[in-house]
Design a binder for these strands. Structure first.
Lengths: 150, 150
DNA sequence: TCATATTATTGTATAATATTCAGATATTTA
DNA sequence: TAAATATCTGAATATTATACAATAATATGA
């Protein structure tokens, strides 16, 4: 058998979706062409960045969710953006923020389990020479990406 | 003129999108019917929870992003889930986690500006009798919902 | 092991949906 | 207030998803 599922998940996690114009038209009781026009405008103006799927992350081996506060190395302290952009390549990192407070970066990380989390952290701490990383583990994800849990 | 934009944003923020089967088929070089079958399976098994849009939140009056750690009231300490589910109704709250550490809840909040943030916080602190709330403001959102910033 | 049931793949036909286009209407600009 | 620009919308068309049926692969269990 072809194992298409992981490829689908990877594509749908970031994009490869599209708005349901006729469903929206029905819901808002407006002509489909009007909805179409307005959505294209939002796309043209880059108000909409992407259309994507939201998963039950436990079911795609990404059920272990952790927030990580990071102090970057003293050399990188002045421009954490560079590291942030490199971290953005990792598909296990859901979000990256430059933030106020005692740390420069706040990461949201999804891994299969705490073991995978541990190895990812060791990897990125070594690679980017973080001076400190402090973790908060999510025990229950009630809402994610504006979508409520089942 | 009809001002459809805010209604579109509200709908697309949580759903009203669908996968682009033929595009995925082209990308993965598989028959469209095979992709269709596999995606329907993911939906049937509730692996996929929703299809939605990701926005440039600055452009939809939601550019002020804050992470808020919450201590709930002593009465609610044993079951923060109840409050979490009520908070989930607010469209300005992107995510809600029950978490480890010094706080019970971690919220991700998107408002137009710090004024709207302030009034929202006053509202929910009063409503749910939080005993403490500690905020970290996002200065730069490099990646959100698995999608990189422009 | 081998028969049987279940699940997965895929081409063809059809249904549903998005998109184009052109004309009308509203709004902005100068 | 006239001209330019942006928005709305119905009708025609193009694209895409879906239903179906045949086939193939895998799992089940005596």
């Amino acid at each position: 058998m072809k194992n298409i599922e992981p490829k689908l998940v990877e594509l749908l996690k970031q994009g490869y979706c599209t708005p349901q114009i006729s469903q929206i038209a029905k819901k808002l009781k407006e002509p489909g062409t009007t909805i179409h026009y307005n959505i294209k405008k939002l796309e043209r103006d880059k108000v909409i960045r992407s259309y994507k799927a939201v998963f039950d992350y436990k079911k795609i081996d990404a059920g272990h969710c952790t927030y990580v506060f990071v102090n970057v190395s003293s050399e990188d302290y002045g421009s954490p953006e560079k590291i942030a952009h490199e971290l953005a390549n990792d598909p296990r990192i859901e979000s990256i923020d430059i933030c106020t407070g005692d740390y420069e970066l706040l990461l949201k990380i999804r891994t299969k389990d705490i073991d995978e989390y541990y190895s990812l952290m060791k990897e990125i701490i070594a690679k980017f020479k973080f001076s400190k990383a402090s973790s908060i583990i999510s025990l229950n994800q009630v809402k994610s990406e504006f979508v409520r849990a089942a």
